[in-house]
């Protein structure tokens, strides 16, 4: 894997996540849609560390801002914070443990939801109904918890596949370190 391959791969995954979220998952009713972007971000950040988390978080948030039509910065800030938090917990979280991805995804989903609400309130962009926000956050957390491990496996599988395509190249496992 070339030094730029991993960032490109992760960007591709985020981009795909955004596209899938917008085109498919946004149609799912009752807030049952998973946040694939967050799941990719968590997987990459926990395994990659703080810089990976920060850069991917900012990118993921920016893409989400772009795609969703919200004022730029709302999701950028929220996902950036999520990415930094996940990356800084790299040494504390072992994503290979069976339940860790699910628990991390559930907690991160709720916190991200609350953080987004706080950003919206602080900036005065809209009124937030906290109970509704918590309810939809809890549902999304449950769905994300179910999908966390498959998405983590997907991210790792994609990285392995990318590595096999460049066997002679050194593996830059943590690109940004």
């Amino acid at each position: 894997m070339t030094p730029m391959a991993r960032p490109l791969l992760l960007f591709g995954l985020l981009f795909t996540g955004i596209a899938v979220d917008g085109a498919w998952l946004s149609r799912v009713l009752w807030g049952l849609a998973p946040d694939l972007v967050l799941l990719v971000l968590l997987s990459a950040a926990v395994r990659g560390g703080l810089p990976t988390g920060a850069l991917l978080g900012a990118t993921a948030g920016y893409l989400r801002d772009l795609a969703s039509g919200t004022p730029l910065g709302v999701y950028t800030f929220a996902y950036l914070v999520a990415g930094i938090a996940a990356g800084s917990m790299m040494t504390m979280l072992d994503f290979d443990q069976r339940r860790v991805p699910a628990a991390t995804a559930a907690v991160a989903t709720v916190l991200l939801s609350l953080l987004t609400g706080v950003v919206v309130v602080v900036t005065g962009l809209a009124t937030v109904h906290w109970l509704e926000l918590l309810w939809s956050g809890a549902i999304a957390a449950a769905v994300n918890a179910v999908l966390a491990r498959p998405v983590d496996a997907l991210v790792r599988g994609a990285e392995r596949a990318a590595r096999r395509r460049h066997p002679a190249k050194p593996i830059a496992y943590r690109v940004f370190r």
């Binding site: 920060a54 850069l55 730029l72 910065g73 709302v74 930094i84 950003v119 900036t123 005065g124």
Partner: peptide, 18 residues
């Protein structure tokens, strides 16, 4: 520093847009 820089950029973007 990278994280702080990105946070600052995000906040600036947010402020400008808001």
């Amino acid at each position: 520093a990278l994280a702080g820089l990105l946070l600052a950029a995000a906040l600036m973007l947010l402020t400008l847009q808001v």
